[in-house]
Computed example of a mutant assay.
Amino acid sequence: MKNLFEVFWVFLRLGCTSFGGPVAHLSYFHDEFVNRRKWIEEHAYADLVALCQFLPGPASSQVGIALGLNRGGILGALAAWLGFTLPSAILLILFGLGISDFAVSADIGWLHALKVIAVAVVAQAIWGMSVKLCPDKERITMAGLSCVLVSLLPGGWMQVGVIVLGGLAGILFLRKIPTLPSRPLDIRLSKKWGAFFLTLLVGLLFGLPIVAAALNSSSLKMFDGFFRAGALVFGGGHVVLPLLQAQVVPTGLVSNNLFMAGYGAAQAVPGPLFTFTSYLGAVSSQAPNGWSGGLLCLCAAFLPAFLLVFGTLPYWEKLRDFKNMRYAMLGVNASVVGILLGAFYHPVWTSGIVSAKDFCLAIAAFVALVFWRAPSWSVVLAGAVLGALFW
């Protein structure tokens, strides 16, 4: 029980301070759980990030769910998700209900400063990961080529392709690497349970539309639409936007103006962008809406992430034991560094650094994080205060 409270409170703090999108979230997780708390070692974390980049759904939330699973079992995974997700979900539902216009009006000052701080946080994570995961010219080259590919040909499927190519390159070119550290995760699920969760995922994908149509239930139809969006999208929150728009705007559930206003508000809150689904449920023109609709859509969108993580990790741990897979993972991890480097340029750098003042703040934050070892949450709060005062 002590572990569950610890997991919840740590992720709740991250859920209140993790601005900057999924790449920044992975950087906050790296600083908190690899560097500070030592819950997971470097290569195991990189392997986990690689797996979640390969799976459909919100990658940063899936990494958080897996970290909670590693620390406290299934209840730990749920505690991690609740802590990381609830702050932004509650803010967006409140915004949708018209109680607060804080998120939209905050599009200057402290919000822009937080985007600048995200640049430093991501740069710190990439710096630390590259030193450990790309220590030789072969893996540096793999990371560089991966960065070029995802920058010139952006999209979720390209990220998956780059990860596959990195694995093949690892098997072909990294066999001379003498040490292959691979500390196993503490996954308390058997392969039978993994098969059950994957079967449940497939069953819901095919069964929910049939049941919703047979019962003519608006709640089930809404749940099915958001479940499908969470299960079939590669590339994270920004990529799910057109799927959600096609789900709610043409059907008249949400007007296009309301949709875009909510999407703007979602950029201004911490935590995963997938919590935008809670706003859509809250402002739906048909019942269920309000709090019940928001929570229904939120759970529907994130349920596939749980099923995918619970279903794949038991097999993933076994695969990591094979020698060729361990060589492949060295290449995959180098490719992940390249993917993060590409995301560092766009959208992290391009949305955060627009003036010399922004660049100076980012450098100061980077120095504080890397050389003064300041905790990331304190740098985030300091950046918000500076932004409110001077931006």
Rank of each mutant, 00 (worst) to 15 (best):
W193I: 09
L174V: 07
I187P: 02
T141K: 13
I163C: 06
F173T: 15
W157D: 03
V150Y: 08
G167R: 08
S146G: 11
V148F: 11
G161D: 00
P178T: 12
I177H: 02
A169G: 13
T199M: 11
A143E: 06
V160W: 06
G167Q: 07
G144C: 08
K176L: 00
V150D: 07
V164M: 11
S146A: 15
I187W: 05
K192C: 00
M158W: 08
S151F: 07
L174R: 11
G155R: 14
S146T: 13
R175A: 00
L200S: 04
I163G: 06
P178S: 03
K176M: 00
L152R: 13
S190F: 02
G161K: 09
V162E: 04
L198T: 13
C147L: 13
A169W: 10
L189K: 12
G156I: 14
G166Y: 01
L189N: 09
L145C: 13
P154L: 10
L180W: 08
G194Y: 05
S190A: 05
V160P: 09
K192P: 00
W193T: 10
L174G: 09
D186H: 13
L172H: 04
I171A: 07
P181H: 06
I177W: 04
R188W: 00
I171T: 14
L180M: 11
Q159I: 15
R183D: 04
P184M: 08
K176Y: 05
V150M: 09
I177T: 14
L200K: 04
L200I: 14
C147E: 03
L189E: 06
L165T: 14
G167M: 12
R183C: 01
R175H: 05
A195F: 08
L145P: 05
R188Y: 00
W193A: 10
P178K: 11
V162M: 07
F173A: 07
G167N: 06
